[in-house]
Design a protein around this nucleic acid. Structure first.
Length: 201
DNA sequence: CAAACGATTTTCT
DNA sequence: GAAAATCGTTTGG
């Protein structure tokens, strides 16, 4: 079943980040369908989180979509090269978001390989937010789209992830956030080979 | 209007 | 292990 808007509009972004593990992200761009199970996420808790683009209530053209009602996509360009895919959560004017960092490919592996210019399935195909977005065909132009299709949606296929297999860790690449960099806002599935390595982890 | 920067990945040494 | 790639967004003049 496709996750309803009510899944995203709840207030606890950390809780939602955990629950997204094991859900399936499905995209259909250029008539090509790809899907993968989410194995790694990071929560960004809006105005009080220095690592978030919206910290301190910052509001610009880019971050405006984070202030929207939960359940839309926020994609932004990092280092001029990488498209990073986020899910906006919480209610309007509360800019919470969850970065999807890695998936385990389930459908359309051949399409992902072609988009990534690779020959065979390897964890590096979708481990890491930039790589994953490329594999799924995610582009910054889909920012603001509803996560209920037709181009992109997340569904529950009833994969059960035991809570003891969910690992909480610090986020990647946010050292500049000072004290908020140590918060355990990164979640991943223990032992899954498609979880990104991060920088020093 | 010009300049600096980054929630990363790849490539070269 | 270090450095480059590369451009939209943000910030300063």
């Amino acid at each position: 079943m496709v996750l309803p808007e009510s899944f995203y509009t709840r207030k606890d972004v950390v809780e939602i980040a955990k629950e997204l593990l094991g859900k399936v992200l499905v995209t259909t761009f250029d008539g090509k369908r790809t899907a993968g199970m989410i194995v790694e996420t990071e929560a960004y808790a809006g105005t009080t989180d220095k690592a978030s683009h919206a910290h301190g209530g910052r509001r610009t053209n880019r971050t405006e979509v984070m202030y929207a009602y939960g359940g839309v996509a926020y994609v932004y360009l990092c280092y001029g090269i990488h498209h990073l895919f986020n899910v906006v959560t919480n209610v309007q004017d509360t800019p919470h978001a969850i970065l999807i960092r890695a998936i385990e490919p389930l459908e359309g592996v051949d399409v992902m390989l072609e988009r990534r210019g690779k020959e065979k399935l390897h964890p590096s195909l979708t481990a890491g937010p930039g790589a994953m977005s490329t594999a799924l065909g995610i582009h910054i132009r889909i920012t603001g789209q509803q996560l209920q299709g037709p181009q992109i949606y997340i569904e529950d296929r009833c994969f059960s992830i035991s809570s003891k297999d969910i690992i909480a860790a610090t986020r990647v690449g946010v050292a500049y956030a000072m004290d908020d960099a140590v918060l355990p806002y990164r979640f991943y599935i223990k032992g899954n080979p498609f979880v990104s390595k991060g920088k020093g982890l």
